[in-house]
Design a protein around this nucleic acid. Sequence first.
DNA 1: CGCAATTAAATTGTACGCAAGTGAATTTTG
DNA 2: CAAAATTCACTTGCGTACAATTTAATTGCG
Lengths: 155, 155
Amino acid sequence: MKAHLAKTMEIPEEEKRLENQLCFAVYSTAHAFTRAYKPILDKVGLTYPQYLVMLALWEKSEQAVKAIGEQLDLDSGTLSPLLKRLEQNGLIKRTRDSRDERQVIVSLTDKGLAMRSEIDTIMTAIGQAAGCTLEEMKTIRGLLRGLRSNLTAAV
Amino acid sequence: MKAHLAKTMEIPEEEKRLENQLCFAVYSTAHAFTRAYKPILDKVGLTYPQYLVMLALWEKSEQAVKAIGEQLDLDSGTLSPLLKRLEQNGLIKRTRDSRDERQVIVSLTDKGLAMRSEIDTIMTAIGQAAGCTLEEMKTIRGLLRGLRSNLTAAV
DNA sequence: CGCAATTAAATTGTACGCAAGTGAATTTTG
DNA sequence: CAAAATTCACTTGCGTACAATTTAATTGCG
């Protein structure tokens, strides 16, 4: 290997602009989604992260905090207070696993399960707001999955 | 218009899964980016949102808080405390605009300007972590811009 | 001109996200 | 089997995000 090799490639100035950062495109689109969801989710009394947790639970009730965290890529420091609020709103209940007392099993209440009927309204509204074809959605989803997997592996 | 029309289209169960939500793909990729940036930005003492503000200022120093907010799509509620921290770290200074005393002009200090030399190292490292071709990056960036624009217009 | 409406930034209050640390339960090891 | 290491959830502290309010300055309108 040669000595004195530049540690970094030269990056064109244009590529250094905020607007041209891929990370910023992802960051600002994430915020745009949260804002688009807000008026819809306000009606059912959920925040956007709470809605994601509900999606996980509607797929499978009776999940440990850790399992929910793995699906959402969030740790208990984020989930514990969020789940406490969902519990206070009567959507979920939390019980210690009798087989392994370290774990807390989160499950839907009747009220939480009933809220699943809102899913079609919510997703239709967001689909409209996103305003792209199912094909485009799948393309972006696929590209982001690859990107996310690279970023996660790199750390 | 016919009466009794269904308000919402039927959405296939598979499309209702957390993992298949486009919003979740964006949400989790944004977090993955933040985590990938963390070890790199820790070395220069910046958080990820602070880095975005610095990018805006490296492009053009002497900007009002509102102008920065428009580029990042953030309001003063978020920016005020963030800028206060950048000022405490000696990277920027804030002065009232004498022409319009309502505005605060943010400008780079020598230390803040000097930090721009880290840009190549940071962007090269993230490029490696993202591990996709320049072509893919541009594709995703373009698709996300369209998506963001739709979502914002819808609200 | 003079007052109402608007604008800019800061502040307050709520809710994430995440690092770091705590405490209790379980698993691994010597 | 007992001590050490690990695991799980919770808590604490800090830094965003954002709605809503406040204060000060400027603009618009009669």
